[in-house]
Simulated assay, not measured.
Amino acid sequence: MDAIVKNFPPRADNIRQAEPAPTQAEVEAAVRTLLRWTGDDPEREGLLDTPKRVAKAYREMFAGYSQDPADELGRTFEEVEGYNDLVLIRDIQFHSHCEHHMVPIIGRAHVGYLPDGKVVGLSKIARVVDIYAHRLQTQEAMTAQIAGVIQDVLNPRGVAVMIEAEHMCMAMRGIRKQGSTTLTSTFTGAFQDDPQEQARFMMMLRAGSSR
């Protein structure tokens, strides 16, 4: 079962905490509370170090809050021999977490842009995806955020982003439908204005698809 969603407005990237961040001790105490709530004993041997491990894992999985994706796009290259056609980075694998249930989202992002005199290192596009993925997300917002920052910083003639992902909030709970994927896409500039550019982006994705 696939759902397709297009052209969501970018969400503001200047996320601010209303209060100071909790201390390490407060985080570990919260995890122990959750362990007790599940019915388990946080003092048993297998769970003694779990609060510390969870805090460490969360620091890694949500590291995107302390990183600025625009910084990754700051260095560009203009010696491209006049190249101004589509640049497509396909199958950027990522994992994120649903902001509604804090369970995993696992998927792939496909990002294309039409340069206007300058290009950015290919790894930087993947890094932008990774930064946004390492935050609590909805797939729709993440799709728009990736397109928005590339458009704002590089100012290309257009950006196309498609994400396909499986949401564990559907697979692990609720209706529990494993294997269901969601497709979202956002287009800016020439991709938004010219259906032929959209079609070319989709054709190039299909041409290299292993599925």
Rank of each mutant, 00 (worst) to 15 (best):
A3I: 10
N7A: 05
F8V: 13
F8L: 12
P9H: 14
P9M: 05
R11S: 15
I15T: 12
R16T: 12
A21K: 06
A25H: 07
A25C: 01
E28W: 08
A29S: 11
A30D: 09
R32E: 15
T33R: 06
L35V: 13
R36Q: 15
R36L: 14
W37D: 11
D40N: 07
D40R: 12
D41T: 11
R44L: 01
R44F: 02
L48R: 15
R53K: 02
K56T: 00
Y58T: 01
Y58N: 00
R59H: 09
M61A: 15
F62L: 15
F62E: 06
S66A: 09
P69H: 01
A70S: 12
D71E: 15
G74C: 11
E78Y: 00
G82A: 11
Y83M: 06
D85H: 14
V87N: 03
L88P: 01
L88H: 12
D91W: 02
D91Q: 07
S96R: 03
S96P: 13
E99V: 09
H101N: 14
M102C: 15
V103A: 12
V103F: 13
P104R: 14
I106F: 09
G107K: 14
A109Y: 13
Y113I: 05
Y113P: 06
Y113L: 04
Y113H: 02
P115C: 01
D116K: 05
K118W: 00
V119L: 00
V119E: 00
K124G: 00
D130P: 02
D130V: 14
I131W: 02
A133I: 15
H134I: 08
H134K: 15
H134Q: 14
L136N: 03
T138N: 02
T138M: 14
M142Q: 13
Q145P: 07
G148S: 14
I150L: 04
V153M: 10
L154Q: 00
N155E: 11
N155L: 06
N155A: 11
M162Y: 09
M162P: 04
E166C: 04
H167V: 05
H167M: 09
M170D: 05
M172E: 09
G174W: 05
I175G: 05
Q178C: 01
T181E: 08
L183M: 07
L183S: 00
G189F: 06
A190V: 14
D193F: 08
D193K: 14
D194S: 15
F201H: 05
M202S: 08
M204H: 10
M204T: 09
L205S: 08
A207E: 15
G208D: 03
S210R: 10
S210N: 01
S210L: 06
S210A: 11
